[in-house]
Design a protein around this nucleic acid. Structure first.
Lengths: 329, 329
DNA sequence: ATGAAAGCGCTAACAC
DNA sequence: GTGTTAGCGCTTTCAT
C-alpha cells in the first residue's frame, strides 16, 4: 500500500503538500497539484481512512438502531436517513436490536469507542435513564420512537392525533366494542394509547381489559391475536392493530375463518405500507411518512455535528399523521 | 477523552501493560489487571477504534451493496449477513446502489481507502471487468447475483433450476402463451432466462418478442407490465414475473380490470416474500432462501479474511430453489 | 511480568 | 507556496 510519504518521495515534495492536494486546499501551485495527482495514480495511492479518522477525530459514520431489517416501515425510515446521509458524505452502520434492551445498549458502545460520530434511534427499548449517559460521547437523535423525558433532539409523528383519528373513524362507523393492540412502554406507545382512549372516552365507550393485546409486532402476532379474539365471549367488532403487518395477517386469518372484513370485524392498520393496498380487502390505515422523519432526523444529526443545533437539549420536530380509509373498516 | 496514556499514568504502569489488559493478553499479573480495570472505569476510558484500526490494519467493517433497502428480498439477505456478522464482531455498512453503475463503483472506494475490510455484493450493475481491479484491495464476495466470469467466491441460488421449475409448472397447467419479465444482464438474469427457455423449448412452445418485458423490479413495474399486456392482440395466458413485488401488483391490477387470476391470467412470482401468502389469490412463487445465502456469504467472507479460503479464485456455493404452488397459477 | 520506544498514515501549526 | 515536525491513540517488538 502506497502512503502519503511514498507520494511525497516520488514527487520530491513534502507530505504536507501532498496532503494539501488530497484535501483540495488552496495555496498549492497548479503544476505541483498535477504532479501529485499523477503520482497518486502512478503509485495506486489511496488515503487511509483509519489514519484520517484518527487524526481528524471524525469517522463520518452513523449508527442507526432499528428493531428488524425485515420490517418495511423501519427500512423506509432507514431509506430516508440514507438519502440525506449519502448527500452529506456519511455512511450508515446497521444496528439491529431485535428489540433487545441489551443489544441496544451494546450498540452504544460504538459511540464510546468513537467508531461512529453519533447514533440515530428509530426504536427504543431501554428507559431514558439508561441511555442518557451516552449522550456525553456524541449526538444521539431519536427518530420515530421517543421518550417524553429524553434530553436530545427528536423527530417524531403525532401519535396521539394518529390513533385518535383512527379510533374516531372506527367509532363513526358505528363500532362500540373496539380492541386495541399495544407495543412497548415508550412515549410513542403511551401517546398512541392516549389518542385511542381520548376517542373512546369522548364517545362514552368502554374497553374491556381482555380487548387489549400486548407485544404485537409481527404477522405471527397478528394471527395469534385474532385467534385469541375469536375465543372472547363478548367479541369486539373492530380492532386497532398498531401496524400493517399485524393487520394484514389478521385480515387473512379472519377470512380463513369465514369472517367478513369489515362486516364481522373491522381491522385498522398503521403505517400504510405497500402491502396495505395490495391485500383484499385493502387496509384502512394511518399513513406514517417514514422516509420523511428519517431524512429530517439525519438533517438534525448533521446540524448537531457542526454545532448549528444543540445536541443535549430536548427539541421536538413533529409531523402529522393521516387516516387512509380503504376497505377493511 | 481518556487515552491509554492516562490510564498508564494513573496506575503507574506502562501503556504496554494497559494495552495488554485491554486485549486480554496473558502474562499480566492478576493484581495489575484489576488495577487497570479499575482505573479504566474511574477515568471513563474507552479504546479509540480509529487508532486501533490504524494500528491493526483492520476495521471489522463490511460494505454490503444492495439495490434498495425497501426491497424485502434484499433485506432478507441483509438479515442473513447481519446474523453471521454480529456473531463474529463485524459491523455492516449499508450501500444502496439504487441500481446505478456509478454508485456501485463509488462504493468500492470504501475498499481502496481501507474504510472496510471487504465487500459483499447482493446485486451487480457493472460488468465483471469493471469490478475485478478492486479485488486487489480486499475480499469481494458475490451473494445472490453473480457473473459467470467472476474470479471471487460466490454464493448463489440455482436460477436455471428455479425458473425451469416455475415455467414447467405453468406449462403443465396447460399454458402455451407465456410471458416473461427479465431484469439486468447479470449471470442471474441470463440463467433465469435459460431455465425459462429450457422449459419452453422442451415443450415445443414459442415465445413472441412482445411477451418479453424488461427492467421489471417494482410494484410500479408490475402495474406497467400488466397494462402493456392487456394491449396485446395475442395475449399470453400466464406470466413469469421474476419477483413477488411485481407479481403482487400485477395480481391487483388484473383483478381491478375484472380478470380472474389464475383463470384469465396465471401469475407466477419469485422470492416467496411474506406478501405472497397474504394477497388473494395467494401467490404461486419460487422460494429463495435469502437469509441463508446471506449467512453463507458472510461465512465465506470471514474465511477469506483469515486466510482459510482463497479470495481471488472463483468458487461457487449453490443452493437449490423450490416451487411453491398456491393459487395464482 | 513489565517497560521503552518505534511507528501505523495522516494533518496542521508553524516557519520560511 | 512549500517544508518540518509534532502528534492523533494504539500495538508490538525488543529489552530486562
Amino acid at each position: 500500500m502506497a502512503t502519503i510519504a511514498d507520494v511525497a518521495q516520488y514527487t520530491g515534495l513534502s507530505s504536507a503538500t501532498v496532503s494539501r492536494v488530497i484535501n483540495n486546499y488552496p495555496h498549492v501551485s497548479k503544476d505541483k497539484r498535477k504532479l501529485v495527482h499523477d503520482a497518486m495514480k502512478e503509485l495506486g495511492y489511496f488515503p487511509n481512512t483509519s489514519a484520517r479518522n484518527l487524526r481528524n477525530r471524525k469517522t463520518n459514520l452513523v449508527a442507526v438502531l432499528i428493531p428488524r431489517l425485515t420490517n418495511p416501515f423501519f427500512t423506509l425510515i432507514l431509506d430516508g436517513i440514507e438519502k440525506v446521509a449519502e448527500a452529506n458524505g456519511f455512511q450508515l452502520i446497521i444496528c439491529q436490536t431485535k428489540s433487545s434492551k441489551k443489544k441496544e445498549l451494546d450498540f452504544l458502545n460504538l459511540l464510546q469507542t468513537k467508531q461512529v460520530d453519533g447514533v440515530i434511534f428509530t426504536s427504543i427499548e431501554n428507559e431514558w435513564e439508561e441511555i442518557e449517559p451516552f449522550t456525553a460521547h456524541g449526538p444521539i437523535i431519536l427518530c420515530n420512537e421517543y421518550h417524553h423525558n429524553a434530553t436530545v433532539p427528536m423527530v417524531r409523528l403525532d401519535q396521539v392525533q394518529g390513533s385518535y383519528l383512527g379510533t374516531q373513524h372506527l367509532i363513526r362507523k358505528g363500532h362500540t366494542r373496539i380492541a386495541y393492540c399495544m407495543g412497548s412502554t415508550s412515549g410513542l406507545s403511551t401517546d398512541r394509547r392516549r389518542g385511542f382512549f381520548n376517542a373512546i372516552e369522548e364517545a362514552g365507550l368502554e374497553v374491556k381489559p381482555e380487548w387489549i393485546f400486548r407485544d404485537t409486532y409481527t404477522m405471527e402476532d397478528g394471527k395469534r391475536v385474532f385467534i385469541e379474539l375469536l375465543k372472547l365471549s363478548e367479541r369486539p367488532t373492530a380492532i386497532f392493530t398498531g401496524g400493517d403487518e399485524v393487520a394484514s395477517a389478521m385480515v387473512k386469518e379472519a377470512r380463513r375463518n369465514g369472517l367478513d372484513v369489515p362486516k364481522d370485524l373491522a381491522i385498522l392498520g398503521f403505517d400504510d405500507q405497500p402491502i396495505a393496498s395490495l391485500i383484499e380487502p385493502e387496509l384502512s390505515t394511518i399513513y406514517q411518512p417514514g422516509d420523511e422523519i428519517g431524512a429530517r432526523a439525519m438533517d438534525i444529526f448533521i446540524d448537531c455535528l457542526n454545532g448549528t443545533q444543540e445536541r443535549n437539549r430536548a427539541t421536538v420536530k413533529m409531523l402529522p399523521l393521516s387516516l387512509v380509509v380503504r376497505q377493511s373498516t
